[in-house]
Computed example of a mutant assay.
Amino acid sequence: MWFAIVLSALAMTGIVAARYALASGAFALATSRRRPGLYDRLGKQIGREIRWSLVSAAIYGIPAGVVAWGWQERGWTRIYTEWTALPLWYLPVSLLIYLFAHDSWFYWTHRLMHRPRLFRIAHAVHHASRPPTAWAAMSFHPIEAVTGAVVIPLLVFLVPVHVAVLALVLTIMTVMGVTNHMGWEMFPARFVHSPLGKWLITASHHHVHHQAYNCNYGLYFRFWDRLCQTDRGLSAP
Rank of each mutant, 00 (worst) to 15 (best):
A21P: 00
A21V: 09
L22P: 05
A23F: 13
A23L: 09
A23E: 02
A23H: 02
S24H: 02
S24N: 03
A26T: 15
A26P: 05
F27S: 08
A28E: 12
A28D: 14
A28K: 07
A28H: 15
L29Q: 06
L29S: 13
L29G: 13
T31V: 14
T31S: 15
T31A: 15
S32V: 01
R33N: 08
R35V: 12
R35G: 00
P36M: 07
L38R: 13
L38W: 06
D40V: 07
L42R: 12
G43R: 10
G43W: 00
G43K: 10
G43L: 00
G43N: 02
K44V: 09
I46D: 00
R48P: 01
R48H: 08
E49V: 02
S53G: 14
L54M: 13
V55I: 15
A57E: 06
A57L: 01
A57T: 04
A58Y: 05
A58W: 10
I59S: 10
Y60I: 03
Y60V: 01
Y60N: 04
G61P: 11
P63L: 04
P63F: 09
A64M: 13
G65A: 09
G65C: 04
V66N: 01
V66T: 07
A68N: 09
A68C: 02
A68I: 02
W69C: 06
G70K: 05
W71Y: 14
Q72L: 14
E73A: 13
E73G: 00
R74G: 01
G75V: 09
G75K: 10
W76F: 14
T77C: 11
T77F: 07
R78E: 13
I79L: 09
Y80M: 03
T81E: 08
T81L: 09
E82F: 04
E82I: 00
W83S: 12
W83T: 13
T84P: 00
T84F: 11
T84K: 11
A85G: 08
A85M: 10
L86D: 03
P87H: 10
W89N: 07
Y90V: 12
Y90D: 04
Y90I: 11
P92S: 11
V93N: 08
S94D: 03
S94R: 04
S94Q: 12
L95Q: 05
L95T: 05
L95E: 06
L95A: 05
L96H: 03
I97T: 01
Y98N: 00
Y98H: 00
L99V: 06
L99G: 07
F100C: 12
A101L: 15
